[in-house]
Design a protein around this nucleic acid. Sequence first.
DNA 1: CATTTATATCAAAAAAAATTGATTTATATC
DNA 2: GATATAAATCAATTTTTTTTGATATAAATG
Lengths: 116, 116
Amino acid sequence: MNPLSIPLTKGNTDRPDAEFFHSYEKKFKALADKKRLEILYLITNSTSVCVCDLSETIDMQQSKLSYHLKILLDANLITKETKGTWSYYQINQKEMNGLLSNQLCCIFRTEDSTCC
Amino acid sequence: MNPLSIPLTKGNTDRPDAEFFHSYEKKFKALADKKRLEILYLITNSTSVCVCDLSETIDMQQSKLSYHLKILLDANLITKETKGTWSYYQINQKEMNGLLSNQLCCIFRTEDSTCC
DNA sequence: CATTTATATCAAAAAAAATTGATTTATATC
DNA sequence: GATATAAATCAATTTTTTTTGATATAAATG
């Protein structure tokens, strides 16, 4: 047995449940790709972007881009607004700021006026 | 062409390089698994834990646990200290606090005394 | 010094995620 | 109304990640 054993939270009712860990897994999975991080950077640093704008700026074919945008959207890290044939994407500030440190401003998140 | 087009940062020299996005990809990949998040939760809420402690608390075989701990270690999210046959793992507070929001205290990170 | 215990590593298999090119849907334009 | 454009979806393939059980290493214990 471990000689320096410190009791862990086994059976602790305050311990987050499986659903809690699963919800964060989804968010971090969405962040766990350098192309999606680059997309987030671009979306963060512009008010509203369509797929065609992104497709030009980062070298990526359209179907691939839509695939990655859907992952970010499903994780609720970005939002979408459709105008005619165009889909405009925005950062979900509340979600991103609640997830990432202020140190990551203004790369993957925005300024936090309520802090410091 | 996009009628609401706002110029993106194409050719902007301030734009982070590929290496920057790659380094964060690695960190978020390490976070992108519910079992690793559960491991981090346990490590965060104890001063020092060995593999055998974790293996008892979360239902996971030893080789699998070592595999996941290595991923967290390689991403520099935790640190390791070996004493005899035991390996004790600690949270890398600086790294985690620089990555995650204060809102995630004290689940995946610790209290931030320098903020708010 | 043989045995047990803690942990890491390995190779093979299984599962999950990403890429590709084609197709579909819907709107805008001529 | 035919054609072009923007974006989403699909199925097949490729790549990456995870799981599994076995084995290796090294320290502790009898």
